[in-house]
Design a binder for these strands. Structure first.
Lengths: 336, 336
DNA sequence: CTGAAAGCGCTTACAG
DNA sequence: CTGAAAGCGCTTACAG
């Protein structure tokens, strides 16, 4: 590989020179403002841009404007299929709005969430998406930074500090459990996170109460395959094993399925399962998972649009969930 | 939420003023050079930084230096578990080197790979990681940009344009198939991508030839759950169904497992399966997948380190694979 | 509709 | 060891 002499970058001045205008005019045409430009002049500039292969220097623009067209994204763990799919959808939506995504995993070693946000802010991000659960204090700090922020997939955003969007976890969970009780199962357990603010456990309880059924057992487990596996082992070994389980995530459900299989339990014949998220992989387990789907693409789109438009309307924007019926719940009529 | 008056940003000048030095000196201490600074002065500056909560403006620094401490990453599809895990590992490694990751999915709608690279370059990235298969022409274009680039997980990088790193796909595949033939299976099929440069199909053929066995059938399928499912259906329906299958990715294998289950075939009793990648999820299918693991964390670390150190040594750096034995191949002694 | 010029917040040769 | 100053490539009030 011969030494690449990086060609001198072509700058706005080059374009100005070639098209015989000032750099200001080049800016006006490239940014469509803030001043109008005569059509002939505009054409000349555009032509020069084409000829020179000019591309604006994003750093210079960011410095000058005080903000970059980059959106920072903090996510607990991007390996998690749900977040991986959310990320992908956000990326898609970003292109449509000329933005790019600066991604940070909050399970990083030596950095607190607030530290990470500061880091992103120093990089002049024009918006921030947080797909993680923040404490009120953390939210307050983030809000004080004055950069457009959106909490995505928080259990609640009604604490007033930051605008948030997501699904109605409580109603979605109820939807899942209603379906299970609709199958006639009277003993439905919950497997999911231990956080009190997680509305899914409440939705599960709502459904049971409303159906006049006793509260089943509640097993708290990390949101991971391993968490699901461990919970599933505990459930399988329990003499008072439940007839059905509502899992707070597809990933947990996959772990559950493995544990039940290991224990020789059949799903749904011995234990029925319904989960949450609606990730792609839920369709490829056997039995395939009946799951409460979150509208990932729609949420991603709305998130980027809001950040791009600078719509900082506070409060929680709710998106609808949809029950995707497959086999793990006991429905026989479904495709797989 | 009351209107946040974004506090005027504290700049290098503020720090200089407070500590009674010039902004140059502030730079020297913050960057540890290029000039030495007296210890007392350094302490005074550091103290001022602390007091003011000063954070350098990354855009200004990038403009001034001509390069940002951001690493661009182009990945085919970040939803794919293997890439999701690679991304996560890269993020981890990035923090350790004070870098951040600008991520772009190359399955984006209206943007060619080259277009995307230009986009990233305009953002002053200091390095580029490409986890995608580029044509020679594309590689040439990218190389001509003069920014440190690393091809990760390419099937081959020996074409001389760009440095590359990854696993020895051919040897890894052979390892998998050797294991299968070691079980006594004489009819081993391949399921994987159609790209001729993909060395996994060759490794499969190598193993069979070396074992004196006839070449099994080769089914080309997209790298996705759906691809695996479709291939699995075809295989299950085939009267001359193979006794074992080597799948080019865990994701494909998951689809295979679903199809075999639907067809009433038992794995490994009726069809044995070994796959490639070693993603986490491979441990949670039932039966659990025997798979050829790629050293994801090690590769990610090496990638970031090389880019951070500006080590643009050409050629292909090979990482070792490791066969992780579980149940899908027919080994009974394993844990799950 | 167009241009000259200041300014964004850094880095770094140059001079002392 | 420290400082004054030019320069990185944009944006945008201000003047015409």
């Amino acid at each position: 590989m011969d030494e690449q002499h990086r060609p001198r970058k072509v700058t706005r001045a080059d374009v100005a020179r070639l098209s015989g205008v000032s750099t200001a005019v080049v800016s006006y045409v490239l940014n469509d403002g803030p001043k109008p430009v005569a059509t002939v002049t505009r054409e000349r500039v555009l032509e020069a841009v084409r000829v020179l292969g000019y591309r604006p220097n994003a750093a210079a623009r960011a410095l000058s404007r005080g903000t970059a067209d980059t959106i920072g994204m903090i996510v607990v763990d991007s390996r998690n299929p749900f977040f991986a799919q959310l990320l992908h959808a956000l990326d898609r939506a970003s292109v449509r709005h000329g933005r790019s995504l600066l991604i940070v995993n909050s399970d990083r070693e030596r950095q607190s969430a607030v530290e990470q946000v500061h880091d992103l802010v120093a990089r002049q991000i024009g918006g921030l998406i947080i797909a993680d659960v923040l404490t009120e204090t953390e939210q307050e700090v983030v809000a004080s930074l004055g950069i457009p922020t959106l909490l995505v997939n928080q259990y609640t955003g009604a604490n007033g500090f930051l605008p948030a969007m997501g699904v109605d976890f409580r109603a979605g969970a109820k939807q899942a459990v209603d379906h299970l009780t609709g199958h006639g199962y009277r003993d439905v357990a919950f497997v999911g996170g231990a956080l009190a603010i997680d509305q899914r456990e409440r939705g599960w309880a709502d459904a049971l109460r409303e159906a006049g059924l006793p509260l089943g057992q509640s097993v708290h487990a990390p949101f991971s395959y391993e968490g699901g596996l461990a919970a599933g082992r505990a459930i399988a070994a329990d003499p008072a094993r439940p007839r059905a389980v509502f899992a707070a995530s597809d990933q947990i459900a996959v772990g559950l399925l493995a544990a039940f299989s290991d224990a020789g339990l059949r799903v749904p014949e011995d234990v029925a399962v319904v989960s949450f998220d609606g990730t792609t992989e839920a369709a490829y387990t056997r039995p395939a998972l009946t799951t409460v789907a979150q509208p990932i693409a729609e949420m991603a789109d709305a998130a980027i649009r809001r950040l791009a438009d600078g719509d900082g309307a506070p409060g929680f924007t709710t998106f609808p969930t949809e029950l995707v019926v497959r086999r793990s719940c006991g429905c026989e009529h479904s495709a797989s």
